[in-house]
Computed example of a mutant assay.
Amino acid sequence: MYILLVVAFIDMFSQLPVIAPFATSLGASPIIVGSVIAVYSFSNMLGNVLSGIWVDKFGSKRILASSLILAGGLVFLYTYVANPTQLLAVRFFHGFAAGFIVPAAFAAIGRNDDSESNGKKMSHSGAAIGMAAIIGPAMGAIISSRFGIEWLFYNISAALILIGIISLALIKSKPRGIKKANIKEDAGFSFIKNPDIQFAYIAIFLLLLMQGLLTYAMPLKVEELNLAEEMTGIFLSVFGIVAIIFFVLPSNRIFDRVNNRKLMFSGLFTIALSIFALGLSTSSSALLISMIFYGIGFALLFPSTSATIMKGTNSQNRGKAFGIYYACFSLGVILGSFIAGILGTSPTLIFTVGAALVFISSILMFLKRKHILNKS
Rank of each mutant, 00 (worst) to 15 (best):
I3E: 03
L4W: 00
L4N: 10
D11M: 08
D11K: 02
S14R: 07
Q15M: 14
P17R: 05
P17E: 04
P21D: 12
A23N: 12
T24C: 00
I32W: 02
G34T: 03
G34H: 02
A38M: 06
A38L: 06
V39E: 04
V39H: 03
L46D: 05
F58V: 09
A65K: 05
S66I: 15
G72A: 08
L74E: 09
V75Y: 12
Y80E: 12
N83M: 09
Q86A: 11
F96W: 10
F100P: 09
I101G: 07
P103S: 03
A105C: 12
A108K: 14
G110V: 11
R111K: 14
D113R: 15
S115E: 14
E116R: 13
S117E: 12
K121T: 13
S123F: 09
H124V: 13
G126N: 08
A128F: 04
A128P: 10
I129N: 02
M131V: 12
M131N: 00
M131G: 05
G136N: 05
M139F: 15
A141E: 08
I143L: 13
I149L: 06
I149T: 15
E150Q: 14
W151L: 14
N155T: 15
I161L: 09
I163L: 12
I163N: 06
I165C: 10
A169W: 12
A169F: 15
L170C: 08
L170D: 07
S173L: 02
K174P: 15
P175T: 00
R176S: 12
I178D: 03
K180N: 12
K180D: 14
A181H: 09
I183M: 04
K184I: 05
K184E: 06
K184S: 09
K184R: 10
P195W: 06
I197D: 00
A200D: 06
L208S: 04
Q211C: 04
L214P: 10
A217T: 03
V222I: 14
L227V: 00
G233Q: 03
G233E: 02
V238I: 15
F239P: 04
I241C: 04
A243Q: 11
V248R: 01
P250M: 07
R253D: 09
L263D: 10
S266H: 03
T270W: 01
S274Q: 00
S274G: 08
S274E: 00
F276A: 06
F276R: 00
F276W: 01
A277P: 05
S283F: 10
S283P: 01
I289N: 02
I289Y: 03
S290Y: 00
Y294M: 05
G295Q: 02
G295T: 01
G297H: 06
L300A: 06
L300E: 08
F302E: 01
F302A: 01
P303Q: 02
S306I: 01
T313Y: 13
R318G: 05
G319E: 08
K320H: 10
A321P: 14
A321T: 14
G323F: 09
G323Q: 12
I324F: 13
Y325Q: 07
L331H: 02
L331M: 10
V333R: 01
I334L: 10
L335G: 01
S337L: 05
I339Y: 11
I339Q: 05
A340N: 07
G341E: 03
I342H: 05
G344R: 06
I350G: 00
G354R: 00
A355H: 07
V358R: 00
L364S: 11
M365H: 09
F366Q: 07
L367A: 13
K370C: 08
H371D: 15
L373K: 12
K375G: 07
